[in-house]
Design a protein around this nucleic acid. Sequence first.
DNA 1: CCCAAGCTTCCACCCAGCTGGAAGCTTGGG
DNA 2: CCCAAGCTTCCAGCTGGGTGGAAGCTTGGG
Lengths: 136, 136
Amino acid sequence: MRIGDLAATAGMTTKAIRYYESIGVLDEPARTEAGYRSYGPASVERLEFVKQAQASGLTLAEITSILEIKDRGGNSCEHTRGLLKGHLDDLDRKIVDLQRARRELSKMYEGAALLDPAACTDPNRCQVITQSGDGL
Amino acid sequence: MRIGDLAATAGMTTKAIRYYESIGVLDEPARTEAGYRSYGPASVERLEFVKQAQASGLTLAEITSILEIKDRGGNSCEHTRGLLKGHLDDLDRKIVDLQRARRELSKMYEGAALLDPAACTDPNRCQVITQSGDGL
DNA sequence: CCCAAGCTTCCACCCAGCTGGAAGCTTGGG
DNA sequence: CCCAAGCTTCCAGCTGGGTGGAAGCTTGGG
């Protein structure tokens, strides 16, 4: 199959596929006499794998390193587990940070509800921001 | 104070400060006769606010929009509240997304612990990814 | 045979949030 | 008076994951 068929089957663009090849996620495929890229069904599976791994939050570099190990016939379970663990930890940190930001923002928002709009007159001092903004 | 002093006080680089100015996070400051940027103590406070808001996960664009309201005097409490509400909703969506990603990743990670490493041989079918990744 | 669609390569650009460096002016201590 | 450090502007590039477009070749149906 040619690159357009592969792209349609795997649900991505030909641009993305060439990009993946350029950064080493995909090997260089066989070519037709005219120089067109020629793919087999294994390429569809590989792209599905890439998509799933990507949806799980792995970067293309990490996906590439998993695929490289497996291409050499090696066992990549431990490697993969390590990568996943790292991502899990990243995610946990991000979630904690966002929840903290949410608390601060929420404090500002609730504070705004309690203010008397009539008191909002000094153009140099918005109470909503300055009151709760200190903690942000 | 000049930009170097401000940078040292606020704990960032002069490059970052000029960058913030260029994208509108900071207003253009007064200049000395020689053209040097000249800052007052309020700039330190403003940069502290930026740093803290950034540490909480807000983007510079979001921080800028909050600061813009502050600059306009914030004399429209309702407008300010609306903006904060928007940020709050954004944050909630981000948190939900991350939590969903975390659940999926965790499922993959736990699944990986149960697999027999010897079974991990097919380069296109890593069980760690494909077993739990189906739901993605 | 013709023409559009699809393929090739290459170069550029997008987002965010900066950083680095070049070329040239100003400031301050010895 | 001199020189280094600090300031100015502008231009470039970095990461990640691609997209857009130009110029030119190939393929396939009418």
